[in-house]
Amino acid sequence: MSDYNFAYLDEQTKRMIRRAILKGVAIPGYQVPFASREMPMPYGWGTGGVQVTAACLTPDDTLKVIDQGADDTTNAVSIRKFFENTAQVDVTECTQEASVIQTRHRIPEEPLTEDQILVYQVPIPEPLRFLEPRETETRKMHALEEYGLMHVKLYEDIARHGHIATSYAYPVKVEDRYVMDPSPIPKFDNPRLESAAIQLFGAGREQRIYAVPPYTKVVSLDFEDHPFEQMKAEQDCDLCGAGHTYLDEVIVNDQGGRMFVCSDTNYCATRCDAGHRGRLSPEEDAA
């Protein structure tokens, strides 16, 4: 694989992406257009995130890739292999060991540090897109800070369901200026968008890059009488017993059996290793 340039992309492309990242960091929450390249994987598989990661990686980095919190799913495994082959970087499944983490739709449970970069894969970067399909109009709405429509959408949730039913890709306002789509992370993760790490968002098909610098104010939109609420399943994890993590519901048979497990596989495994037990943990050996 030594025939590829370091981290796959050519230097000209990386400079273009790097310039977009820096402008994104300087204007938190604003979507910077960039000339997204075709990558050796289909749109929807994280081409935006991969390009941002490629522009950030150095040979000294340790990369972690997660898909819905899991290190061992197809998307995560193939992106991790891609960078192992094209950038020869070390890879890890351990959140604390990673210096660059590419994620699809989750923020790791473990709090991130100043030395880490979190790269999100974003399908639709424009939070107003389903309310206003025209790019010319949404751009104007951002320029004029005209976000009333978004509050109407949240209000209609309340009118119809009695509460804000939006449960993922929950819109946030960054540094009191831009309304931003935090990518389809569960709203459980929204409070952790205020982080010590640099957070970069890449949308390949939609050709946008945006960023949230460390310690930036990120507020989930809500109403005084309907404040933002974190949401998770009421159960504890069936493997590690954690009651404070985001859980996936897994169907285990065709008799309606189900179990709840941490969506962050590394966090769950670390807890299991530390001796935490859940409802369905295997019996400890009597010996």
């Binding site: 370091f6 230097e11 400079r15 790097r18 820096l22 040979p59």
Partner: peptide, 11 residues
């Protein structure tokens, strides 16, 4: 490699 390291400092 050098531009990647320089970019990380710039970032």
């Amino acid at each position: 490699v050098q531009s990647a390291q320089a970019f990380r400092a710039a970032l």
